[in-house]
Simulated scan of single mutants.
Amino acid sequence: MPAKSRRNLLLVAGALLAAAVAVPVASATPETAGQPGIVGGQPAAVAQYPFAVFLTDENGSQFCGAVLIGENSVATAAHCAKAVTKTNLRVVAGRQDKRVKDGTVSTVSDIWVNPDYTDPGTGNDIALLTTSTRLRYDTAQVTQTARYYAENTMATVLGWGRLKDNGERSDVLRSVDVPMISDASCKTAYGNYDPSTMVCAGYANGGKDACQGDSGGPLVVGKVLIGIVSWGVGCAQPGKPGVYTRVSAFADELEKRSNRGLF
């Protein structure tokens, strides 16, 4: 089964087709280019995870997750940042339920995409959005160390994605706890795994994972951001853990750019 990014396909067809992600394991078609959301988890409170935010197009259609690391700095996956134009991109913070209008919605004034990024399957899947509005919520701390990636360290992945592979979309923020997996085990699962810019998390028997609509969302230990939802094969399949961007590899760049800001 092909490896695919975990972006949702809710956007205008023309915009998504223009930004289709091609992962080297297999080419994605318009029907399969997205992966489902949080599988095997439970509803989570934005009050507990105020740094968890999501991305929409100008019509309010959610398609990716993201994470607040500064008042106007939002980290996400590169393939999410490239999915729509800057003019059409919105960041929604402080909103637990997508069906309501609370929280803060901001346009984006600047987008930085890692220049080494080509597609999720080759790594470097990270971007930083600068919001036009200050998002006054608690931020996640960007890890600069490798200690959080030790095998069996428990981490939490957050998102508004699907509840199972090609299943129902969640209206509310959800979370699930998953153990970190060794580089050797992840390399066994995925021949294109790059330990310098990727990290894996999940159970050998599957059952708990990120899914469609969760791309760009945070993998955290407490308030410490260690990963960005990137790609995988299906959702919560045995032997196919979720693959995340290894945030520590980009900590210096994120710190430099988030401190630059607009304010």
Score class of each variant (00 low, 15 high):
Lys82Glu: 08
Pro43Ile: 04
Asp171Thr: 11
Cys235Asp: 05
Lys187Trp: 00
Leu163His: 03
Met198Gly: 06
Gln48His: 10
Pro179Gly: 13
Val46Leu: 13
Pro50Lys: 06
Ala44Val: 10
Val199Thr: 15
Lys240Phe: 13
Thr143Asp: 06
Pro115Trp: 06
Asn259Trp: 00
Gly261Trp: 00
Arg90Trp: 01
Lys82Asn: 14
Asn192Ala: 13
Cys80Gly: 06
Met154Gln: 15
Gln62Phe: 07
Ser248Val: 08
Lys187Ala: 15
Val92Pro: 01
Ala77Cys: 07
Thr76Cys: 08
Gly60Val: 07
Val172Glu: 11
Ser230Glu: 05
Val100Phe: 01
Met180Thr: 14
Ile38Glu: 08
Gln96Leu: 03
Ala33Gly: 06
Cys80His: 04
Thr104Cys: 05
Ser248Pro: 01
Thr188Leu: 11
Ser182Ile: 10
Leu89Met: 15
Gly206Pro: 01
Lys223Pro: 06
Lys164Ser: 15
Ala204Glu: 11
Pro30Arg: 09
Thr153His: 11
Val224Met: 12
Val91Leu: 12
Gln237His: 10
Asn8Leu: 14
Asp252Ile: 05
Leu68His: 11
Thr153Tyr: 03
Asp97Tyr: 08
Asp209Val: 07
Ala28Gln: 13
Gly159Trp: 06
Gln42Cys: 07
Ala77Leu: 00
Val105Asp: 08
Pro43Val: 08
Asn59Trp: 00
Val220Ser: 12
Thr153Gln: 14
Ala83Ile: 01
Ala140Trp: 04
Ala66Arg: 05
Ala66Val: 06
Arg95Met: 10
Asp125Met: 00
Pro238Tyr: 10
Ala33His: 09
Lys82Ile: 06
Leu225Gln: 09
Leu17Asn: 13
Ala22Cys: 12
Glu168Arg: 14
Ala184Val: 09
Lys223Tyr: 05
Pro179Val: 03
Thr156Tyr: 04
Thr122Ile: 11
Ala201Trp: 04
Ile226Trp: 07
Leu163Pro: 02
Leu17Gly: 12
Gly234Met: 12
Thr122Asn: 13
Val142Ala: 03
Gln42Ile: 09
Ala83Met: 07
Thr85Gly: 15
Arg7Ile: 15
Ala83Asp: 08
Thr188Gly: 02
Val12Gly: 12
Met1Arg: 14
Ala3Met: 12
Tyr149Thr: 14
Leu262Phe: 03
Ala204Ile: 02
Gly41Leu: 06
Val224His: 07
Gly217Glu: 12
Met1Glu: 06
Asp183Trp: 01
Thr131Phe: 02
Gln42Asn: 10
Asn59Ala: 15
Ser258Leu: 03
Ala201Asp: 09
Leu173Cys: 10
Thr29Ala: 13
Ser230His: 01
Lys208Gln: 15
Ser230Leu: 04
Tyr149Lys: 13
Val100Asp: 10
Ser5Lys: 08
Asn114Glu: 15
Gly161Met: 07
Val221Lys: 14
Lys240Ile: 02
Tyr137Asp: 06
Thr133His: 11
Asn152Pro: 00
Gln42Phe: 04
Gln237Pro: 00
Ala83Cys: 01
Val142Ile: 15
Phe54Ala: 02
Thr188Pro: 00
Leu219Phe: 02
Ala44Arg: 09
Ala184Thr: 12
Met198Cys: 05
Thr197Tyr: 03
Arg246His: 01
Thr32Ala: 13
Asn72Arg: 15
Tyr193Cys: 14
Gly239Gln: 09
Pro238Trp: 09
Ala66Thr: 05
Gly123Ser: 10
Leu163Gly: 01
Gly60Ile: 09
